[in-house]
């Protein structure tokens, strides 16, 4: 199952005009967290909030919708959100924590829940895990290279960054610049090269841009808990959903990209194993079931 296990997949967006305006895609991440907060399903959320440095996110415990919305938009560099979960529970005293996580962060959280060795009374306080799709991530200095050196734009002028259609897009108030993805290769985080998860397979609800039109998001509803919250948010009208395009620009595209990512990573895993380098995942020869499973 190259897209993980899921109960349903749809194309969806937030119905809130303000969220639509500031969100990266359909605003599903922000809308779900805000809705969960309003409904007291969560009492706070760890998000990739702004820091003093433009486009360098800082994991933040958001206690209000405004704070959740301040974190909207994709930052293509590290935001160690998992780090802040303990603070959320200990310092902020939260009992039901929501969070946004890229697939590898989801992996840290889920492992901690199944094997909470030193992690006391935290595992059961994660009430909503919104996963986002992720092809790769970049060190902050890589990002600076794209923006300042390759595109020659001042960081402070950048309003949005996006990866899509084979290009890295940089939006400022009055122009749109692109860098071919060929030129961003070699700047990715190294740890991404063995990553076998594209669509946040272990989240409660996973969302991303690929597979849906601009301004909309693709959404996989995965766990029972995620299913309940997603249905409630739909019923309450916080989000709207329609059937996902099954074809070339929808599920087919998602399947294609996920397969490509996994095949590439599997090759690197096999090479590393052959060299005797450590990697926590099985080599393809050791896999009994799905050759592209995240194991």
């Amino acid at each position: 199952m190259v897209l993980g296990t899921y109960k349903q997949v749809v194309t969806a967006r937030s119905t809130d005009k303000q969220i639509q305006k500031i969100a990266q895609d359909g605003g599903i991440a922000s809308a779900l967290l805000c809705f969960a907060l309003d409904e007291k399903i969560i009492d706070g959320a760890v998000v990739a909030g702004p820091s003093e440095v433009m486009w360098k996110p800082e994991p933040t415990v958001a206690l209000t919708s405004d704070e959740i919305l301040a974190a909207a938009g994709t930052k293509y560099t590290f935001s160690p959100n998992v780090w802040m979960l303990k603070q959320a529970v200990r310092q902020y005293g939260l009992e039901k924590v929501g969070t946004v996580a890229i697939p590898c962060q989801t992996m840290g959280i889920r492992k901690m829940q199944s094997y909470p060795f030193g992690v006391r009374f935290l595992a059961d306080k994660i009430a909503l895990l919104v996963g986002i799709f992720c092809m790769e991530n970049f060190p902050y200095e890589s990002l600076r290279t794209f923006i300042s050196e390759k595109a020659g734009v001042d960081f402070d002028l950048v309003e949005k960054m996006d990866i899509g259609k084979g290009k890295f897009w940089i939006h400022t108030q009055d122009q749109v610049l692109t860098i071919p993805l060929k030129e961003t290769h070699g700047y990715e985080q190294n740890g991404c090269k063995v990553c076998l998860d594209y669509v946040s397979e272990l989240s409660d609800i996973a969302t991303g841009s690929v597979g849906s039109p601009d301004g909309w998001s693709s959404v996989f509803v995965r766990t029972d808990g995620g299913d309940t919250i997603f249905k409630q948010a739909l019923e309450a009208g916080a989000i709207e959903a329609k059937a996902i395009n099954e074809g070339k620009f929808g599920l087919e595209m998602l399947t294609k990209l996920s397969t490509q990512k996994k095949e590439k990573a599997m090759k690197v895993i096999d090479e590393r194993k052959a060299m005797g380098l450590p990697v926590p995942f099985k080599a393809s020869s050791e896999k009994e079931g799905d050759p592209l499973a995240n194991v």
Partner: peptide
Amino acid sequence: QALCIGCGTCAMACQTRALTM
């Protein structure tokens, strides 16, 4: 070993706050 992905799980788990990111 080129495996770190900056998730922050280690810093979260450290019981003495010896780790930051």
